[in-house]
Nucleic acid binder design. Structure first.
Length: 437
RNA sequence: GGACAGGUGGCCGAGUGGUUGAAGGCGCUAGUCUCGAAAACUAGAAUAGGUGCAAACCUAUCGCGAGUUCGAAUCUCGCCCUGUCCGCCA
């Protein structure tokens, strides 16, 4: 409890935390934290002193009674007076404990809404404009009269927004025949690559999770409005990062099992509250989309290396598909709540003449591990340590489908199948447009 | 959904109102032995928090939360979870 940030460390080096939060645009938080923490500890100490007295007296009662010296109330015996002494502490202890708990809950709630401290290598900045490009791979395709994915998809008779809207409203799509198959092929290709070449273990995971899980990965308590909730109190996962990372919830992982590298293909559900009017056309921003997720659980000292490795695994998917992309480091103002450092991979979309996000790889450090009590113990070490958690898209299937359609579109409206996907397409090498009369 | 049975330390498992943080085993750490290892033996070791320079001491924790009691792992109530059987079902 009260562990989502190291309170001892906050007490000792409040400046470190405040400057970290300042880089995220927050006011100094430690004065309030320290005030609540001090109040709580004072109450705790007082309660513990009384408890100690109570326990001592109770123990004496036990000793006396075991010797057969049973006291009678009001009789003035030693036992009876001890019993009364203990009873006298009761109310006072209860009051103190109640206040201590209340203060602790307040502190806990306050802390649970504060974002992770950015890594020192993360560039400062207020918005995406301040993100820093790390590398640019492949030449962006410049096509004459390049079409956007929804025009291509509809031209192929494989993408139907209208029908999807009838049953589900906006931000849903219905894929058909060759395009549906292409989506499936992409997902299989990604999973196979990560499991067979990158050493990830494939998991098939729950998509409905409880509060605790989302609290652990950081979506709750602050971002409930971005999520869908069922009438049973479950939440639909916005990414299988939630399910994969929470596999180590409340556990002490055997160090020999680290690093854990997990992957899964799942639908992701997002309410997209606050994104009204953004990317309304096409399937860039949907309430439901498939994503292959990568999660790594590592020792504290190894998460930075793992972050680079994971990003390379995600990039490898795009390389194999021969898609141009660039990798950027998100600045402090653009990073997610739980992240210490994030690389975004943006794929080139000829139809939009722009790079668009297709993957986001984050090192969360011990931020999520503290929230979900995920630890490991090193041989010889006295204390357990929090694991480090990382997550990344490897990659977003829906957006990758868009990228393939736009990059492999032909002037006649057909779409070639990338070599890497051919083994998954059952002999189909090209998607042909509908013939209009 | 109905009926039972359970949830104890890193793991397994005993305990069923009183000096119990909790037997025993496995695993772990150190030592003895050994050329070395294994085995055996000896010792140590739960987690979190608080006070303290430290040694150390104190408090809490036996699924979670209330309650009974001078005192709860143990009794009562509620909740959550797991297992088994029945019903339903992809």
């Amino acid at each position: 409890m009260y562990s989502m940030f190291d309170l001892k460390l906050i007490r000792e080096t409040p400046g470190f935390f405040d400057s970290g939060w300042k880089r995220r645009g927050l006011e100094p938080q430690t004065p309030k934290i320290i005030e609540m923490d001090e109040k709580r500890r004072a109450l705790l100490t007082e309660a513990q002193e009384l408890q100690s007295k109570r326990n001592e007296a109770s123990k004496q009662v036990g000793i006396l009674m075991s010797k057969g010296i049973v006291g009678t109330f009001g009789g003035g015996s030693v036992t009876a007076s001890l019993m009364q002494e203990v009873a006298g502490y009761k109310d006072r202890i209860a009051t103190l404990e109640e206040e201590e708990k209340k203060t602790g809950d307040e502190l806990n709630d306050f802390l649970s809404r504060l974002p992770n401290i950015p890594d020192e290598t993360v560039p400062d900045g207020a918005s995406e404009k301040d993100n820093k490009e790390v590398r640019k791979i492949g030449a962006p395709k410049l096509l004459n009269s390049a079409k956007e994915h929804f025009d291509i998809g509809e031209g192929l008779g494989g993408m139907d927004f209208e029908t999807a809207a009838k049953m589900s409203g906006s931000r849903f799509v219905l894929l058909k025949s060759g395009v549906a198959r292409l989506e499936r092929a992409l997902a299989q290709f990604m999973l196979d690559t990560h499991t067979q070449e990158h050493g990830y273990t494939e998991l098939s995971v729950p998509l409905l999770v409880r509060d605790e899980a989302l609290y652990g990965t950081g979506q709750l308590p602050k971002f409930a409005e971005d999520l869908f909730k069922t009438n049973t109190g479950h939440w639909l996962v916005p990414t299988s990062e939630v399910s994969l990372t929470n596999t180590v919830m409340d556990s002490i992982v055997d160090i020999g099992d680290l690093p854990l590298r997990l992957t899964s293909l799942t639908p992701c559900f997002r309410s997209e509250a606050g994104a009204a009017g953004k990317d309304t056309r096409g399937m860039i921003r949907q309430h439901q989309f498939y994503k292959v997720e990568l999660v790594s659980i590592t020792e504290a000292e190894k998460s930075n290396d793992e972050h680079e490795r994971m990003t390379a695994c995600a990039e490898n998917i795009l390389k194999k598909l021969d898609l141009a992309y660039r990798t950027i480091t998100l600045c402090t103002g653009d990073m997610g709540f739980s992240a210490r450092k994030t690389y975004d991979i943006e794929v080139w979309l000829p139809g939009q003449s722009a790079y668009r996000e297709i993957s986001s790889c984050s090192n969360c450090g011990d931020f999520q591990a503290r929230r979900m009590m995920a630890r490991y113990k090193k041989e010889g070490d006295k204390h357990t340590k929090y694991v480090h958690t990382l997550n990344g898209s490897g990659v977003a299937v829906g957006r990758c489908l868009i990228a393939v359609l736009e990059n492999y579109q032909q002037p006649d409206g057909s779409v070639l199948i990338p070599d890497a996907l051919k083994p998954y397409m059952g002999g189909i090498t090209k998607l042909e447009p509908l013939q209009h009369a």
